[in-house]
């Protein structure tokens, strides 16, 4: 066991972690931030995506001790200061980009990382970027649409509705 301290969503948080404790387990079990989800055990599904020092990271691919001293952002820290949904979250609601909600935290965190690097991605760029995030409910159509809308692009040409 070691004591690990990191800044999570702007607040300093300290907890205990074994050498084998994954960052995702630390967030969920030690810090009780259960918005970050675990959907697989092979780092494929992306339900656990968080940001570590500004980069999108699958929190199952990193040990908690490796994040000692890091700046971590999770889904719980994404809403606006007044509690309203941020632009990406609001676009997901507006365009029905989620159903069961389980993959959603990872999708939102990946979308945020994408738009930071590429503020106006094409549909194909979004689809390619989401290769590491699996959704079983939506067929991705409305997720792609939501991300395009969040980037300020006209989505009226995207089929359906």
């Amino acid at each position: 066991m070691a004591t690990v301290t990191m800044t999570v969503n702007g607040k300093s948080r300290t907890g205990e972690a074994e050498g084998r404790t994954l960052l995702v387990s630390f967030l969920r079990e030690e810090l009780n931030l259960t918005g970050t989800h675990v959907g697989c055990d092979t780092s494929q599904c992306g339900a656990c995506v968080v940001h570590v020092n500004g980069e999108a990271v699958k929190a199952c691919t990193m040990f908690a001790q490796e994040a000692d001293g890091a700046e971590v952002s999770t889904i719980e820290g994404q809403a606006n200061a007044d509690g309203s949904l941020n632009t990406i979250q609001q676009a997901f609601q507006d365009h029905h980009g989620l159903q069961c909600g389980f993959c959603t935290p990872g999708m939102v965190m990946s979308a945020a990382a994408l738009l930071k690097d590429n503020p106006k991605p094409s549909e194909q760029e979004i689809r390619n970027y989401l290769q590491g995030n699996i959704c079983r409910c939506t067929g991705y159509h409305n997720i792609v649409k939501a991300i395009m809308a969040a980037s300020g692009q006209d989505v009226s040409a995207v089929a359906a509705e």
Binding site: T34, G35, E76, Q78, L85, Q93, H96, L98, G101, T104
Partner: peptide, 22 residues
């Protein structure tokens, strides 16, 4: 096409799934 009210908790990490119960 009313927007889904359940989305707000899912989009903010406040859903309560069974594994979140301890």
């Amino acid at each position: 096409s009313t927007k889904r009210r359940e989305d707000v908790r899912f989009l903010t990490g406040k859903g309560k799934y069974t594994d979140d119960i301890n």
